[in-house]
Nucleic acid binder design. Structure first.
Length: 473
RNA sequence: CGGGGCGUAGCGCAGCUUGGUAGCGCACUUGCUUUGGGAGCAAGGGGUCGGGGGUUCGAAUCCCUCCGCCCCGACCA
């Protein structure tokens, strides 16, 4: 085990790696680019799943599961889609010891195989809309990988829907984007900027891609969820047709939307500090840890006092009593701080005598004695406050690192760290030049902004778009 | 794919220049003492030195070769 966590300011990448190791979230697998998600990390994923499943069901979606392997001919159906994904597809060519007649792709995403099934299932306008989601793993052969942020295999959910009209499909696309915003801001306490992707950054095969962009602690952007309006591109490629009320056969309009374990990487980078993780209470595997402090002769008395408190809190919160005899209290404080547990209660003889406990907040580091009576209410308030404080701190960071510019060169004085906002003429050439010169890419065209009319930040020509650009993960 | 670095105990490393019984710290096991911010003492266990080949009486160390990992670039939902 590492003894210390590298300070963020010294080396942000090393800090990130140290934190995920110290927090016991992941381990590197024996295959390059793959990782094992350990129970403490996986539990966070389960909370995200719970929150999303609630929202998906409330909007009429059902979970289903489609195959891991996709026959090559299906993957080839949609031209842009193949072109976008083929460089990173892993292929299965042998099964049961025999070479396969047709090689099988390990899914990089499931539009193709789901589209082929939808075409069988849909006959009439009465079969629409089809609203499904699947929780799965996907594989994209990446050259540079980092735990959670970009791994060869990752876990995600992918929603796939078919609609009767373009309007309904567009509405679905926006509705799902809003669900992501809600879960990511309310549960993970990560503020995001919703926007539309520029043509160059669009999902392969989509008509429009919408995104949520978050700003990390080091000033780089992270695309944290996307929702795609696919038009009739996939409906045509997979022959998804229905007979409409007017007796005419028509192509359906499809959408897809996804969010992955990358969100956990965002969670770490947005909230973590030099002591380790800081977990937002709503997705914290352990919300309250209680550390009893007692010499041998007092152990029994303290333990009884702690048990009462733990029982009361355990009815409402996720509580852990750390009574491991082999570690000192100081060790335990550090240990749980690395794991980001929002509230720590230190309980010894002094507290017992005062009928109180010492409450330490992970977000602020503040330590205050609080009465044992009404402890559940106190903890409830503090957890709410921590959830709120983490979001506010992240929002402050985002706001203070968002700069409006009239020319992209102004970003240089900020070291290209942060979100930069400016006008864009809409031409891909300017986007390319921006990237070439600065390493920054267009993160999105924010939904609620209009061009200021100051001219494209790259070429100065009349602008049609307002864009958010940054260096990204 | 280009440039650089590294593979020695679970983790982090020394040893290699100049070949001669494989070491240190942490972790682990046992016992005793400890416990309000990373406890102490004592006794233990743990290694095909990344793989293969060569030189040599003898290779972690020298030579050849293969493999893997990390960082920087390029590429990228």
């Amino acid at each position: 085990m590492l003894k210390e966590i590298t300070p963020k300011s010294q080396d942000y990448s090393q800090w990130y790696v140290d934190v995920i190791k110290k927090a016991d979230m992941v381990d590197y697998a024996p295959i390059k680019g793959f990782m094992v998600i350990k129970p403490y990390g996986y539990r966070i994923w389960e909370f995200i799943q719970d929150a999303m499943n609630r929202e998906f069901r409330a909007t009429g979606h059902e979970n289903a599961y489609f195959p891991l392997l996709i026959p090559e001919n299906l993957l080839l159906r949609e031209a842009e889609h193949v072109e976008g994904f083929s460089p990173e597809v892993a292929w299965v060519t042998i099964g049961g010891g025999e070479p396969l007649a047709e090689r099988l792709a390990v899914r990089p995403t499931s539009e193709t195989i789901i589209g082929s099934m939808y075409s069988k299932w849909i006959q009439s306008y009465r079969d629409l809309p089809v609203l499904m989601n699947q929780w799965s793993n996907v594989v994209r052969w990446e050259k540079a990988t980092r735990p959670f942020l970009r791994t060869t295999e990752f876990l995600w959910q992918e929603g796939h829907t078919v609609h009767r009209t373009a309007e309904e499909a567009e509405q679905e696309t926006m509705q799902q984007l809003e669900i992501y915003r809600k879960v990511i801001e309310d549960e993970l306490a990560i503020p995001v900027v919703p926007g539309r992707k520029s043509a160059g950054e669009r999902f392969a095969g989509a008509v429009e891609t919408y995104t949520l962009e978050a700003l990390m602690g080091d000033g780089r952007a992270l695309q944290i969820a996307t929702s795609h309006f696919l038009g009739q591109n996939f409906a045509k490629a997979f022959d998804i047709q229905y007979l409409d009320e007017d007796g005419v056969r028509k192509y359906g309009w499809t959408t897809s939307w996804g969010a992955s374990t990358r969100m956990i990487g965002g969670l770490i980078m947005v909230h973590g500090d030099d002591k380790g993780l800081r977990m937002p209470p709503r997705v914290a595997p352990i919300q309250v840890v209680i550390v009893p402090i007692a010499k041998n002769k007092d152990a029994e008395a303290v333990s009884a006092y702690v048990k009462n408190i733990a029982d009361e809190l355990g009815r409402e919160f996720r509580v852990r009593v750390d009574d491991r005899p082999e570690f000192t209290p100081g060790y335990k404080y550090n240990d749980w701080e690395m794991r980001g547990v929002p509230i720590r209660l230190e309980v010894g003889l002094r507290d017992m005598a005062n009928q109180s406990v010492m409450l330490a907040r992970r977000d602020t580091g503040e330590k205050t004695p609080v009465p044992a009576a009404g402890i559940a209410e106190t903890v409830r308030q503090r957890l709410d406050d921590i959830q709120h404080t983490l979001f506010q701190q992240a929002l402050e960071h985002q706001k203070s690192h968002t700069v409006v510019v009239e020319n992209y060169r102004q970003a240089e004085e900020y070291g290209y760290r942060g979100f930069f906002e400016g006008d864009w003429c809409g031409r891909g050439g300017c986007a390319d030049q921006l990237k070439e010169a600065t390493g920054m890419t267009i993160r999105c065209l924010p939904l609620d902004r209009q061009p200021l009319g100051t001219g494209c930040v790259v070429c100065g020509q009349p602008s049609t778009e307002r864009m958010l650009f940054a260096r990204a993960y």
